[in-house]
């Protein structure tokens, strides 16, 4: 860390530091302004939105109001879709973590014929685009009667979350020192005990990274839910998407709706930056 700072200061001597700073501030504003625009739009009345741009609130702060949010939370469609989002995201995340851990552990530490080939097969599935499965799975779910249900959406997310989960966890579990596992084994721990008491706790950083990655992935998904959910099981992304068609007249619904849908991912992002970043980095192959 120290070496890096000294390098940083030396670099700053080389190029005019002031220019770099100004440039980065401008770019930073560039990145912030769109989100600020959404936030401030969500805090204005429909009349104000129709009359002027969101930057007007800087000269007329009295325009700020929570009315749009209050109205939105009385909107049955939106609140029930928020609940659906939770009902889809939580199971899809937990299932991927559990099933992925089991398989990752088996690939890392168990002996069975063709183990490495099976694992390479899973790795090959990492980059399969979800688009390939939309039509076949729609027909499959239709025939077994879970098309349009929360279960269908969850299952699809689990299926396409697993290759990455197995890949990430197998690689991480393989790094656990053999001695630890052998010691536990000598103490008479069975397979399940070993898995829950040794492997899972030691693999916690990778499991957290995977969990956060998968959570955000499912929470933010539009396409899968657009196809596999119906009006009763749709998550917030789909509920808002149906509103986009009348864009312009309903910014008082869209802006606060989009912001509410962003709150959870943003909280997760700021609270678990570290895990999120390592999840993203491991997922670079996805």
């Amino acid at each position: 860390m120290k070496a890096k700072q000294s390098l940083g200061s030396r670099l700053a001597e080389g190029v005019s530091g002031g220019l770099v700073r100004v440039l980065l501030i401008v770019v930073g504003l560039f990145w912030l302004v769109p989100t600020i625009g959404l936030l401030l739009s969500s805090l204005r009345s429909p009349e104000d939105i129709a009359a002027s741009g969101w930057w007007k609130v800087f000269t007329e702060p009295s325009q700020l109001t929570f009315d749009s949010y209050a109205k939105l939370l009385e909107n049955e469609d939106i609140t029930s879709s928020l609940v659906n989002t939770v009902w889809i995201t939580v199971p899809a995340t937990l299932l991927v973590v559990i099933i992925g851990s089991l398989a990752g552990y088996a690939f890392a530490w168990m002996e069975f014929p063709g183990r490495d080939w099976w694992f390479l097969g899973v790795v090959g599935l990492l980059v399969v685009p979800v688009q390939v499965a939309l039509i076949p799975i729609a027909e499959l779910f239709g025939s077994i009667g879970i098309f349009g249900s929360v279960i269908g959406v969850v299952l699809f997310h689990v299926g396409f979350g697993l290759p990455f989960a197995v890949f990430l966890l197998r690689n991480f579990f393989a790094e656990i020192p053999r001695e630890l596992l052998e010691a536990a084994r000598l103490d008479g721990a069975g397979e399940l005990r070993l898995f829950f008491r040794v492997v899972m706790p030691l693999g916690a950083p990778a499991i957290a990274a995977l969990g956060i990655f998968q959570f955000l992935w499912v929470w933010n998904d539009l396409l899968v839910a657009l196809i596999f959910s119906d009006s009763g099981s749709q998550p917030i992304t789909v509920a808002l998407q149906t509103q986009v068609r009348q864009f312009g007249n309903n910014i008082d619904v869209l802006a606060p709706g989009a912001f509410i849908s962003m709150v959870v991912p943003l909280v997760v992002f700021f609270a678990f930056q570290r895990q999120f970043v390592s999840g993203v980095m491991a997922g670079a192959v996805k």
Partner: peptide
Amino acid sequence: FKLVVFMPMAISMLAAGIIFRL
């Protein structure tokens, strides 16, 4: 700065879409 530029990765493409429609 990195936090600001990286943040949009956490939000949905839907939300980003609405942001940019505005």
